[in-house]
């Protein structure tokens, strides 16, 4: 029986934790024994990519933002202010488009990692602030916790300085004034009780990033054809299950965030224009920096944005 160690960031009862468990249940059979390590109990999320590449863990459900330092094309998922039509299920569709998987898969393989597919979305991820602002131009001079990729230079374009910290530090940093705001997910906002220290939020997502299911490439190559088939099948089922159930989860979180946060910072017309120009800017920058493959990814993304 092939033992597969599957690590992830979330507690078992979290939706993304449940997704990982669903995948394990799908795969457990005569051929596989999947051991799940929730809450970073084997390997930390930040180190998930490297640890998978080196076989310290066999499979990891990795936040896409943690891969951009190793696989530059993953920046496609950090292009700021995704269009309003880009819901979580739409994002999963885009990320799992065969053309996208093909291009990204090749890049992952050069880092000794097999990209199995994208099983989750970060959900609504936006800027939460200690003090409300009336326009995004007021980001100027503020210190904001960044999440990597293009969201960092975008904040800098808006005149903010970017601070780097783990999810766990956000509360204290907001409280101490170490930062004026944080980019974080609705789920972190609710779970960490950030509302008391960051009552204002942007009306719309600044970024939406998928979670990649990664496997150590050597381990993958050691599987025979039927075993690989079984893994693919389990991934397909998991994606379908996740897409089906994520909307309810998103809605639940959105309700919590809505009730806890005090101020919603809505965009005026010139804000909208600025945002669109920034989206375009980074779309182009991405396409021109990372070659033909990047151009192709942008084409596919534009298709899904319609």
């Amino acid at each position: 029986k092939e033992v597969l160690r599957l690590g992830h960031y979330f507690p078992t009862e979290d939706f993304r934790g449940k997704t990982a468990q669903y995948f394990a249940d799908q795969l457990n059979s005569d051929a596989f024994d999947v051991k799940v390590y929730p809450s970073e109990s084997l390997v930390k999320g930040r180190d998930g990519f490297m640890a998978t590449a080196r076989g310290t863990v066999d499979i990891y459900s990795l936040f896409g933002g943690y891969a951009v330092g190793s696989v530059d094309l993953m920046r496609i998922f950090t292009i700021p202010f995704p269009s309003k039509s880009m819901t979580d299920s739409k994002l999963l569709e885009f990320a799992n488009d065969p053309r996208v998987l093909d291009i990204l898969g090749k890049r992952f393989e050069t880092s000794q990692v097999k990209l199995l597919g994208f099983v989750n979305s970060s959900g609504e991820t936006t800027v939460f602030l200690a003090d409300p602002i009336s326009s995004i131009k007021e980001f100027s001079g503020k210190r904001i916790r960044g999440v990597g990729g293009y969201t960092d230079p975008v904040l800098q374009d808006l005149g903010a300085s970017v601070v780097f910290m783990s999810a766990a530090e956000q509360f204290l940093q907001l409280q101490t004034g170490g930062v004026d705001g944080v980019i974080t997910t609705n789920s972190s906002y609710a779970n960490l009780g950030l509302a008391t220290v960051a009552p204002a939020r942007l009306e719309r997502s600044i970024v939406r990033t998928p979670y990649a299911l990664l496997m150590n490439l050597r381990k993958w190559n050691r599987l025979d054809e039927s075993e690989q088939q079984a893994v693919r099948e389990a991934v397909r089922n998991t994606i379908a299950w996740s897409a089906e159930n994520f909307d309810a989860e998103s809605e639940r979180l959105a309700k919590i965030v809505e009730s806890q946060s005090k101020t919603v910072i809505s965009f005026k017309e010139d804000d909208e224009q600025l945002i669109n120009s920034l989206t375009d800017k980074y779309m182009q920058e991405f396409a021109s920096t990372y070659g033909d493959d990047a151009g192709l990814l942008v084409e596919v993304l534009t298709e899904y944005n319609k």
Binding site: A53, S70, Q112, F164
Partner: peptide, 12 residues
């Protein structure tokens, strides 16, 4: 490996 594959931290 980090050197060969040009791995960087995922921050700014």
């Amino acid at each position: 490996l980090s050197y060969q594959l040009n791995w960087q931290s995922s921050t700014t």
